[in-house]
Design a protein around this nucleic acid. Structure first.
Lengths: 228, 228
DNA sequence: TGACGCGTTGAATCAGCATTCATTACATCG
DNA sequence: CGATGTAATGAATGCTGATTCAACGCGTCA
């Protein structure tokens, strides 16, 4: 009878793969892309360097998996936030505010996955990540526009600009180091407001939308946990 | 009598230094940061690898010089555009539109100098470049705010967001490849409009400002030359 | 239990580039 | 024209970090 993998073994293998993935993610979140090195990843996952290659054929593939997982989590959160909203306009606002808040909490990781120096090999992955975020925004922008709530804009351009503004304003190296939680919340709201106004939503209304989006603090904390 | 450098020689040395600088800049503009390699730079400047080190102690210093020169050129252009404007609000608009237009023309170079993967060593330089651009925007935003033309905003945050929006919308990899000159001009105007609105300038007024900023085509072409 | 296959190990290998330096070519000067 | 100091050369060196692979150990099966 041919060799078969026990359930137990299958589980251990899966756990190990996850451990490697987590290790890589944690390193990225703590030290940025420069800290994502095969030996470091292996060490952190309590595994030998060669073992990593049994699970991921190359570093690029591993990083791809990390970014892919992050991408799925973030997109799901955005869609979820949008789905809870009563209409297209608040869905758009919720989407933006949610991204801003989450990006702020998982700042280093998001920056590593979108903006930081890295090998050329993995650049396409980061592009894909940005692409999907922008596409999500574009989708919401178009929906809100169709119901007549926005100035006419090129949704694609606007979505890119929104993404860039949030990333640069909140997670990039120019953004001030996160001090207190309230300060951070305020930054998130300010950024969201800017972005909503850029889409042609008048100031007063934009402020209303931002206020609506604010989640109760404990719920936000819970989300932050999940991101980390 | 001690050895002295003839004027002629001094000139040749300066020319060579400039050639090296130009070579590095051209490589960055054509192939991005990955193409900026010492041997390639040397070859393009018709010089041996070692020679580059007579002029720049390390690659980081050379890249620093490239970015510094770019930074000075761009900042000068922004200040110049602002100085021509009749008041703080149009100065702000001019500054934004000018950056947008120039970034669009020197797209690859600007992207290499601000957003693209690169060695960790030179990351601080890129940060400094972004920093000075953002500072220039912040300065104009504050001036315009003091004359009461803008919504209240955190100038620093707003400036970062503006920079991010323009970079992501116009020069980053998500931005559509530049087709025709008119298409590009339109993109520049659309991006400028978005950004002005984000600062709380109402749509109609923002459109007026954008229209004012449009330069006659030949003048823009001349500027583009200078950038390249 | 013994034979066998799969997963693991980690030191050795490989590759890409920046950087060095012994040598060569050239300028300056008496 | 030598003598001497300066600039240029480019093959060799060094470093960093991904990737490989022969030896090993553990789990599976008869």
């Amino acid at each position: 009878m041919p060799y078969r993998r026990t359930d137990n073994v299958v589980r251990r293998l899966a756990a190990r793969e996850q451990a490697i993935l987590d290790s890589a993610t944690a390193l990225a979140a703590e030290g940025g892309m420069t800290a994502v090195q095969m030996t470091a990843i292996a060490a952190r996952a309590s595994v030998a360097a060669g073992t990593v290659y049994r699970y991921f054929p190359s570093k690029a593939d591993l990083v791809a998996a990390v970014i892919d997982a992050l991408s799925r989590r973030e997109l799901a959160a955005l869609r979820d936030a949008a789905a809870r909203a009563p209409g297209p306009l608040s869905a758009l606002a919720a989407c933006i505010a949610t991204f801003a808040a989450r990006a702020c909490y998982a700042r280093r990781l998001i920056w590593a996955a979108t903006g930081e120096p890295a090998e050329a090999e993995i650049d396409p992955l980061r592009r894909a990540f940005r692409q999907s975020l922008a596409a999500e925004f574009a989708h919401r922008i178009e929906a809100a526009f169709r119901t007549g709530h926005l100035s006419e804009v090129d949704a694609h351009l606007a979505a890119s600009a929104v993404l860039g503004a949030l990333l640069e304003g909140l997670v990039g190296p120019l953004a001030p180091a996160a001090e207190s939680a309230p300060a951070q919340r305020q930054a998130v709201q300010a950024a969201t407001l800017l972005v909503l106004r850029s889409l042609g939503i008048v100031d007063a209304r934009a402020r209303g939308l931002v206020a609506q989006c604010a989640l109760p603090p404990n719920e936000r904390a819970a989300e932050a946990q999940h991101v980390a």
